[in-house]
Amino acid sequence: MAKTDSTGSTWRYRWAHRQNVRRVSTFRGAETAWRRRDDELRRLRALAADFQGSAAAGAGLPLELAGDEVVLWALPAAQLVEVRHTPVLPAPDLAVAPPSGPLRPRRPDGVRVTDAGMAVITSRRLVLLGGRGRRDWAYGRMTGLSHDPAAPVTLIQVLDRRRTSGLMLPTDAAADFRFKLTLAFADAIEQRPAVLAQLDELIAEHAQLKPFRPAAATPAQARLSARVPGGRRTVAVAAAVALLVPAALVESDPSDPTGGAEVAVAATPAPSPSPGVAPVLVRPAVSAPAPRTSPKPTKAPRPSPTASRDPRCGAPDNPLGYDFCGGTRIRRPATEVCDWFDCTPEFWAGRGYLVQCRDGSVSLTGGRSNACAEHRGVRRTFGK
């Protein structure tokens, strides 16, 4: 008869209930992150298809436009920045991938603010209408363009200016500014279709990453380790202690008065005799101590604790073949990984490789700056 609690439910049913709650929570977190990214990519695709300006949009601005020049976008809160040490910036490209992390409202080292005003993107140039004057960056004269991945700063190099300069915008407007500047530059070089094709490819790749609803856990899948407080981790620690304690006792066995010397001498082969000379058997002396002038016998090698170490190098027992012994990093774990390991709440939303956090949970954020941030950091990396 199965052991039951006061509510009448067996421990297997309680285990299945906890597993299903955790799986559903993990799936919903991953699905929310996936939908957020999908909505952003589709918004950018629609914006890229309909992005255009008009001469009327520049009405009221203290900016003289050329005959075929139109205003595409304007932001009243922008700062002009300059770099003390001029770097070599990469050439402008048409990359439209959103930033990997949130931007911080800070000014990078070596960058100083020299003016503030309104940033205007036109079909021919980027303009800052500042309090000290106007600063232009014509698309046709751009030689370098760089967006800071951690700060809302965009640096630009042009042919007719020696010092590198650019704009610093509010963090909530930086991503929109960068995308629209890329569209304006693409129009200037007649490459708008390339931007649309890139967005279509990103949407198709992201559709393949849509998380699947996990299968429901059944009471029959519960293991006996679920009845132990701490689960598989407690069983693994107990097994390791059970293997290491006998090895430690063998190393410190006080019942061997010879300290293993007799075994060592008996195991040491005698030198090969010369031809024609009968071999002499050497019997180790046990009762009489060896003279002080004789060489000290070599002790037998002590058993190493690592000989009895788990072949998975401390990883829990699992049929997936995952261990801590090195090997190839696991970036696409099996769908049943959370059946064998204690996954973090938003496991499937991770974009890295499989790691174990310091609190024992398993995360898919290896290789990222925020890996296991809410679980005391990364402890070990899984391999296969």
Rank of each mutant, 00 (worst) to 15 (best):
Ala216His: 07
Leu202Trp: 13
Gly352Lys: 12
Pro193Thr: 05
Met142Gln: 07
Leu364Trp: 03
Arg124Pro: 08
Ala247Gln: 03
Gly352Leu: 10
Ala247Glu: 02
Ala55Phe: 02
Arg22His: 09
Arg106Tyr: 00
Asp253Phe: 15
Pro291Trp: 09
Pro333Gln: 01
Val120Arg: 05
Val263Glu: 14
Leu61Trp: 07
Ala95Gly: 14
Thr154Val: 15
Gly326Phe: 10
Ala116Gln: 13
Pro316Cys: 08
Leu80Phe: 06
His17Leu: 02
Arg358Phe: 03
Trp137Ala: 11
Val71Thr: 05
Thr365Leu: 06
Arg14Trp: 03
Phe51Arg: 10
Gly117Ser: 01
Arg141Lys: 08
Pro303Gln: 11
Ala188Glu: 10
Ser9His: 11
Arg192Ala: 00
Gly130Asp: 05
His17Ser: 06
Asn370Gly: 02
Pro269Tyr: 14
Ser274His: 07
Ala290Ile: 15
Arg107Trp: 01
Pro333Phe: 00
Phe177Thr: 00
Lys299Ser: 05
Asp109Ala: 15
Asp109Lys: 14
Trp348Met: 06
Val237Gly: 07
Gly166Asn: 13
Leu89Asn: 01
Ile203Trp: 03
Ile156Ala: 00
Lys299Cys: 00
Pro229Trp: 03
Ile156Asn: 01
Ser6Glu: 04
Val113Ser: 05
Val286Ile: 14
Val111Gly: 03
Leu159Tyr: 04
Pro219Gln: 05
Leu243Ile: 05
Ser361Phe: 11
Trp348Tyr: 11
Thr154Glu: 15
Asp136Arg: 08
Gly367Asp: 05
Thr10Tyr: 03
Arg37Phe: 00
Ala220Tyr: 04
Gly276Met: 14
Ala204Val: 10
Val127Met: 09
Thr10Ala: 05
Thr335Trp: 03
Gly360Leu: 11
Trp34Pro: 07
Ala248Ser: 03
Asp68Arg: 09
Ala119Gln: 11
Pro219Ser: 04
Ala97Leu: 15
Pro246Asn: 03
Thr4Val: 11
Leu44Gln: 04
Pro76Val: 07
Arg332Pro: 13
Gly352Asp: 14
His375Gln: 09
Ala188Gly: 07
